[in-house]
Design a protein around this nucleic acid. Structure first.
Lengths: 140, 140
DNA sequence: ACCGTACCTTACGTTAACGTAAGGGTCAAT
DNA sequence: ATTGACCCTTACGTTAACGTAAGGTACGGT
């Protein structure tokens, strides 16, 4: 069931649960942390497209080993209107720090991938040897 | 203080704590999970080079958002001697699965980096504009 | 009128990954 | 002989991130 409200597509909590494979409890928890800010129709939460995007960002951050407060700081970078220059500079500096943090994480992952690939090649060779041995035994 | 025991460099718990910036409790916890297996001199733990490598792998995995049991499975791939071919194939399949998991994580990180970089460029432009405005005001 | 479904709040429970305190051993140096 | 550094075990405490149960609301369909 697709819902639209004054021009924007909106989502119920269970729709988002199904899309991202999380429980409602999880999304409500994220709301209580300020990670999403659904509107209300009576009691019910009404999630906007923006909420949906933020939810996706939260889940991505979570899978990368950030905790929810770090994630909050990071995604809050995207929607702020810093009036003071000083504030703007601090924000920019913080963002750059986060970028380099992410880059070193990526480097760590790349290392891990390379190591596992080397391991895989080694084990693949072993496996081939074993299989040939077995077929030799089969001929006798 | 550098210690060597029958040909191999060994480490005390505090040496590893300092090197990797973790507490002794953390390392002992990893031992209780089987992530490191230090020898003993009396009561004291004696860590080998292998333990040190494994500790490094554990910390890397942790920073990438894996839990300790996932990490255990992954680093145990490196030192096993699978006698049966079936077991070897299962192990290889598991390793390949982990590789693709890591690859999708890397892709997610790359996305996050790109988004933040775009954000940074945008904010940088804003900042320049503000600074020019300020210097204009200064001239008057 | 009744039911089922979707949704809500409140609040206690759980798990992983340690933190932290208490009490004790060993050994070299003063 | 005592002190301080380093290390140990045992065991309860803590935090984040939800899980889960209990009880209630709203509403479209039969």
């Amino acid at each position: 069931m697709i819902c639209v409200e004054n021009g924007g597509r909106v989502y119920s909590i269970t729709q988002l649960c199904q899309e991202f494979d999380v429980t409602a409890r999880t999304i409500r928890h994220y709301e209580s942390c300020g990670l999403v800010e659904p509107a209300r129709q009576g009691q019910r939460r009404v999630f906007s497209e923006r909420d949906r995007v933020r939810l996706r960002l939260v889940l991505r951050g979570r899978s990368l080993g950030f905790n929810l407060s770090e994630i909050a700081e990071m995604i809050d970078l995207y929607d702020l209107d810093p009036s003071e220059v000083a504030q703007l500079e601090r924000t920019l500096a913080y963002g750059r720090q986060k970028i380099s943090q992410l880059e070193s994480k990526r480097a760590a992952i790349s290392e891990a991938i390379e190591e596992l690939r080397a391991w895989e090649r080694k084990l693949g060779v072993q496996l081939q040897r074993r299989l040939r041995q077995q077929s030799e035994e089969g001929k006798r």
